[in-house]
């Protein structure tokens, strides 16, 4: 493992056909013990990346290490638990028997089966056949199978996909609990709310490129100021003299792209110029704003 990176990719690319470049020179680094959100719109290359990291797809070029091993190697897989896309199990077997099959593949102790079933709260339905499970139960069985090996790294692809609100909250709680055990989690999603509430750091992938990476706060970046003042024309003139960039006015409300620390100076100058200030506060960009800006630019924009 390089430094404390559990996942590290170097120029990782996957081309499906001559003109379909799903992942393009991806440079991804996931630190030990963090919940890393892999965010991107549908078709951005998230699942393709996770498949390459799990050893299901061979990269067209570039390389990767996963828990210090090449993707797909038995030594690496021994430390990796993965649920890529829809949880897939044998429909004619019960949930418990499906886990028995996976435990045999991984040589996990039989006692782990009951442990992970309790962890995902599926013990009561474990004797029923997988084909009778609801979407939420299938997702939980997928997480249980990924946990069987007691892995250092967990890769979860859209774990709340198809879940109702209650199921989503339960899955989110489960993931945070897994992270508290000291495991690293790479979580792919296109749901901003999910990522915002679950992840320590986020990487945004658009058209196969990683276009932004950082903590949620870092991605939101420096906020600006929201100002409501009248008369509007005089306020605009004063703000212009102050050099406030990107002054936008809508319904008497100014959005200023300035350092929020300048709020006191701006307030004083406006009052001195006879402008009534009824509102002056720091504006916050939501992750959604950042995401939309990044994706609208087609991966060329900067957060």
């Amino acid at each position: 493992m390089t430094d404390n990176y559990v996942i590290e990719t170097r120029g990782l690319s996957k081309r499906y056909a001559r003109d379909v470049l799903a992942v393009d020179g991806l440079e991804l680094r996931v630190r030990q013990g963090e919940v890393y959100g892999f965010l991107g719109p549908n078709g951005a290359g998230k699942t393709t990346t996770l498949r390459m990291l799990s050893g299901l797809l061979h990269p067209t070029s570039g390389s990767a290490t996963v828990v210090g091993q090449p993707p797909g190697s038995p030594a690496g897989l021994a430390k990796l638990g993965a649920m890529v896309e829809t949880p897939a199990f044998y429909p004619y077997l019960s949930g418990r028997d499906n886990l028995r099959v996976m435990a045999r593949y991984t040589r996990a102790a039989a006692s782990r089966i009951e442990t992970v079933l309790q962890q995902v709260d599926l013990s009561d339905r474990a004797r029923h056949k997988f084909k009778t499970y609801s979407t939420g139960m299938k997702q939980r069985l997928g997480v249980a199978a990924a946990l069987l090996k007691d892995p250092e790294l967990l890769i979860l692809d859209e774990p709340t996909s198809g879940l109702d609100p209650q199921g989503t909250v339960e899955m989110r709680t489960l993931i945070r609990g897994i992270a508290r055990e000291g495991r690293t989690v790479l979580l792919s999603s296109h749901l901003l709310n999910e990522v915002e509430q679950t992840c320590d750091r986020v990487g945004v992938i658009v058209k196969g490129h990683l276009v932004a990476e950082g903590t949620i706060d870092e991605l939101r970046g420096r906020g600006g100021l929201i100002l409501r003042a009248s008369p509007v024309d005089r306020a605009r003139t004063v703000l212009g003299q102050l050099g406030a960039a990107s002054v936008q006015v809508k319904d008497g409300r100014f959005t200023l792209d300035v350092d929020p620390a300048q709020a006191a100076v701006i307030n004083r100058r406006l009052v001195e110029a006879g402008v009534d200030v009824s509102e002056l506060r720091e504006s916050e960009r939501s992750l959604e704003d950042v995401f939309l800006q990044l994706t609208e630019d087609g991966g060329r924009g900067k957060a």
């Binding site: 799990s54 299901l56 038995p74 021994a78 993965a82 199990f89 044998y90 429909p91 090996k149």
Partner: peptide, 14 residues
């Protein structure tokens, strides 16, 4: 059933 991807991310090699 797509179980091939479930078993291939377990410990044994292909």
């Amino acid at each position: 059933w797509s179980t091939v991807q479930t078993i291939l991310v377990q410990k044994p090699g292909r």
